[in-house]
Write a protein that binds this DNA or RNA. Sequence first.
DNA 1: TATGAATGAGCGTTCATTCAT
DNA 2: CATGAATGAACGCTCATTCAT
Lengths: 222, 222, 222, 222
Amino acid sequence: MDQTDTVTRILDTAEVLFAERGFAETSLRNITGKARVNLAAVNYHFGSKKSLIQAVFSRYLDPFTERFHRALDDLEARYPDKDIPLEELLETMARTVLEVPAERHSLKVFMRLLGLAYSQAQGHMRRYIQEEYGSAFTRFTELVRQATPTLPDAERFWRLHFVLGSVIFTLSGLDALRDIAEKDYGEHVTVRDLIRRMRPVVVAALQAPLPPVPALRSEASG
Amino acid sequence: MDQTDTVTRILDTAEVLFAERGFAETSLRNITGKARVNLAAVNYHFGSKKSLIQAVFSRYLDPFTERFHRALDDLEARYPDKDIPLEELLETMARTVLEVPAERHSLKVFMRLLGLAYSQAQGHMRRYIQEEYGSAFTRFTELVRQATPTLPDAERFWRLHFVLGSVIFTLSGLDALRDIAEKDYGEHVTVRDLIRRMRPVVVAALQAPLPPVPALRSEASG
Amino acid sequence: MDQTDTVTRILDTAEVLFAERGFAETSLRNITGKARVNLAAVNYHFGSKKSLIQAVFSRYLDPFTERFHRALDDLEARYPDKDIPLEELLETMARTVLEVPAERHSLKVFMRLLGLAYSQAQGHMRRYIQEEYGSAFTRFTELVRQATPTLPDAERFWRLHFVLGSVIFTLSGLDALRDIAEKDYGEHVTVRDLIRRMRPVVVAALQAPLPPVPALRSEASG
Amino acid sequence: MDQTDTVTRILDTAEVLFAERGFAETSLRNITGKARVNLAAVNYHFGSKKSLIQAVFSRYLDPFTERFHRALDDLEARYPDKDIPLEELLETMARTVLEVPAERHSLKVFMRLLGLAYSQAQGHMRRYIQEEYGSAFTRFTELVRQATPTLPDAERFWRLHFVLGSVIFTLSGLDALRDIAEKDYGEHVTVRDLIRRMRPVVVAALQAPLPPVPALRSEASG
DNA sequence: TATGAATGAGCGTTCATTCAT
DNA sequence: CATGAATGAACGCTCATTCAT
């Protein structure tokens, strides 16, 4: 159009609506209507709704992974011969997560999208994210492994996902939870506050004692 | 119909499909088709799709809250004069969560629905759950408060949500994560395993040291 | 609706519009608009546009094949021990073709549809017709074979298709050609006239002398 | 573009796709995509899709009519005072039909296009062909009239269209029919074979005895 | 002279819901 | 009590065409 590029207008509007209502509940007419762009423009520029969704993600994840890799490079350079402490790793992750969307977009939106992607039908978005951006996560996981050498691998796997769940769930539902917190405890939290609060919890979670070995018995579960 | 009640057939089918694909992605045609029930039966028996969704939840949550209240009654009776230990509270919660769906339905489905409800459009489900079943959560929260007297209220609020996020995220994505875990670490986990693994992590998370007070500075966040 | 059944209204309108404009050029909105029926009714009753097209054909071809088989039964009963003369076969075919649509529908429309089906993209209609109604054609072909014992099989195959082309082409373009004929020769032809005119031509075509055997030489052709 | 002229690229691609799928089923995106040419190029060079279709026809019919007129000139020169025999006329027609597309294009495509033009929506193509190229057909018809002086004019008109139908129908459906013929009779036919086969049939058809005069009775037909 | 971008109209299909029986 | 039929709205997408450069 005139002031902003059509593609950008679509992406900006789409990410907000997707985050607010979910993918299926957001129609292309919603998006193009709000973005004041022709309906056909989405299919012209992105090919399909599914591709638009992926483009919305890429716009967050591409700079994120790039920056994250660079931050990990720096970190490894600072600890040339010994393992990077867990706190440093988490600190780096937190900093990168905060930096990237802060530049142009909203962290809340980003987290909400991430939450949606993980709860989506058939997990096709989960698969897409895994394929495109799995390498950064793998690298991070490996560094965490070196930082927690006594933790069994399977245990670490699950604990990292516990933590991931905490982060995505809390940050993606931020608005609602913040309202409750403000009403009940009179304090207005920012994303930074929340991340500050999370840090000791995450460290404690990862370093918690191992669960007792279960007594052997056959069991089934749905 | 004949063998099973139409209402039950619809509920049984709906909960599975909702859990698999989400609410918006599951049409009444999907449900009635698979349940081999007339299309109009949903609107006839439930009034609307939204009401059907709520009915699916009620069928899980009604017995759950009832049983949970009874379990807490027992617990309070066992600790008449002093606070209930945190581990006991968590144990009771875990046991009730495991018991209820095990009777007729799937815990995985239940958790998936819970996760969807929290990530779903407009949060109308979140609101519904809060209104209908908030009392049980509030009672539990209060007992946790007594069990962790040194924790500031706001801190406890957030940590409980961190934990809630862990549980819902991990259990609702169980199938996918289980596949990865099985492939990478060769161990097949059951829901019981997972809950056993969660216990020390949750305790550690709730008892983690407080974060340092931030230096005062003005800050903004999206 | 009120006077006529919705399904019939759709079929009646569809066959006329399809015959006039072709399948791709006729939209469901064209049909439902002219039939004064809800747009969704087509998909409700037929499932898809493709199925509607096939239903239009079935309504002609089902009674046709049934009646044709019966007519051939009669014919075979009348010639218990010797071959049925070619003229009788053609006469029976012509009579059946004339009878069936005359009852409720238009022969012109039927032929036009047949012509369209044969010239259609990817020939999926041709395939459908072959599968559903090929047996009647095969039976007729076999009787023609017995009636023209001196004709090589391949030659008969091609000549039958020459004739089929004549019939479909002429009858499906009947309106336009009739206008020209009326203007130029002052005679108004009916379908019956045309079929009467075709009979000696078809017989002559099938009984024409064989072409000379070509001198052997390598040749290519697109 | 670079190697071949854009206009030619479009025409070459269009005629193939049109012949394969029909006009309505072939989009300008199909054409320009396959021709690796800009989408707007069709409208730029041809003005509209309809004009492109006509251009595709002209590229076949212009040289055909020119050559056909010349061939008829030659023929008339060889028979200065008496009528040209029917076989000679048909031979000349067949030769010209075979010659023209053989130079650069495919006869199959040409016939398929011709068949489509006759069965296509509203007959606007039929009208266009009639207007642009009717003179050649008229001249040929007149020569046939002289070659078959005993045939009533109306009869000749219809018989010529019977024959036209045979040719167009058979040649435009050549691929499918050839497959069947090859499977059932083990012989691979070329276009030349088919035309050789057609010749005696066409002669016989045109020279068939007249049909009996119908007994007078009022009759109606749809 | 070409072309990337954009457009308005229309496509087949699916949706949750309602209605008459 | 239950259901086949129907409906209006909306869906994602594709269309031929136009426009600004």
